[in-house]
């Protein structure tokens, strides 16, 4: 059974594409057959983060319009055998997307035996974001621990609960998960940033993961390597945990507490 997961947020720049890339890799690493689709028509970034921007021949809009087959447009990831990327068009805009077209592509991917289809949503609540979430079975709502991101995510949660096929047909609704990104335990302790508990209270949902703020994310996107593949980094571990929780394993949250300074660090600063 193919599961369609939308990665959305409302607010821009919170880590949707970073998360889409890392979750897709994490799932593929576990042997799942995964397709990740960029719904940000006109402002495509997923191909850059995945490191396949020079291999885009056909894109999502080409497939919808019948200019090519799905197989021709899907880009196979060089690192993970079961991972495929469907890039967005850079020359068109969101009006090129249609609900029927999106449905056809998702159905075709399901027929090809994909276990997971990750839909990387654009920011906002317009057509691109709406179509990315419309056919979803599950949603990962990416939130920064910061007021405008939380407000926008609240809006998105409202839309997930009402303007999706599952909500409209009344067959279970979209399963919602929160992913907190750019989390800084030090700033939370200093009272400068919303804590995990604060976000849970305002949005009324449990988190599926907390990704710490890290310079590794920028480095990874520049290198075209999804940050989950950066072995040993906190961010990579946090995303790996998130993938496990997505698959049903319960794990305690890591990277949410300020690291305790050792004796020498406290004496000599650092």
């Amino acid at each position: 059974m193919t599961e369609i997961i939308v990665v959305t947020s409302g607010k821009g720049g919170v880590g949707k594409t970073t998360t889409s890339a890392s979750l897709s890799c994490g799932l593929a690493r576990k042997g799942k057959k995964v397709a990740v689709i960029d719904f940000d028509i006109g402002l495509r970034n997923l191909d850059l983060i995945m490191g396949c921007e020079r291999r885009v021949v056909y894109d999502f809009v080409n497939v919808i319009q019948g200019d090519c087959t799905l197989k021709q447009a899907l880009i196979k990831d060089k690192r993970l055998e079961t991972l495929h990327v469907l890039a967005a068009s850079q020359t068109r805009d969101k009006d090129a997307l249609t609900a029927e077209g999106v449905r056809r592509v998702l159905d075709e991917l399901a027929a090809e035996g994909f276990d997971y289809i990750i839909c990387d949503s654009p920011a906002g609540i317009e057509k691109g974001a709406h179509l990315a979430m419309y056919y979803a079975d599950r949603a990962v709502v990416v939130v920064n621990p910061e007021v405008s991101s939380v407000r926008d995510s609240d809006r998105i949660l409202g839309l997930l609960a009402s303007k999706t096929e599952r909500a409209e047909k009344g067959n279970g609704g979209v399963k919602e998960h929160l992913l907190l990104t750019r989390y800084s335990p030090r700033r939370v302790a200093a009272g400068e940033m919303l804590s995990v508990a604060d976000v849970k209270e305002i949005l009324g949902l449990d988190v599926i993961g907390v990704i710490p703020e890290s310079t590794d994310v920028l480095t990874a996107s520049n290198a075209g390597t999804p940050v989950i593949l950066n072995e040993g980094s906190d961010v990579s571990e946090a995303y790996t945990d998130a993938v496990e929780r997505l698959l049903g394993t319960e794990l305690p949250l890591r990277f949410v507490d300020e690291p305790k300074k050792g004796f020498f660090a406290r004496m000599f600063g650092g």
């Binding site: 407000r151 609240d154 809006r155 409202g158 609960a161 305002i202 949005l203 009324g204």
Partner: peptide, 25 residues
């Protein structure tokens, strides 16, 4: 929960919400 941007109107009766009402709802 009543999410940000949502509106609820109970005509001719009381309204009871057994969850929270978000900011800008």
């Amino acid at each position: 929960p009543v999410r940000s941007g949502q509106r609820l109107y109970a005509r001719d009766r009381d309204l009871i919400v057994t969850a929270s009402v978000g900011a800008a709802a």
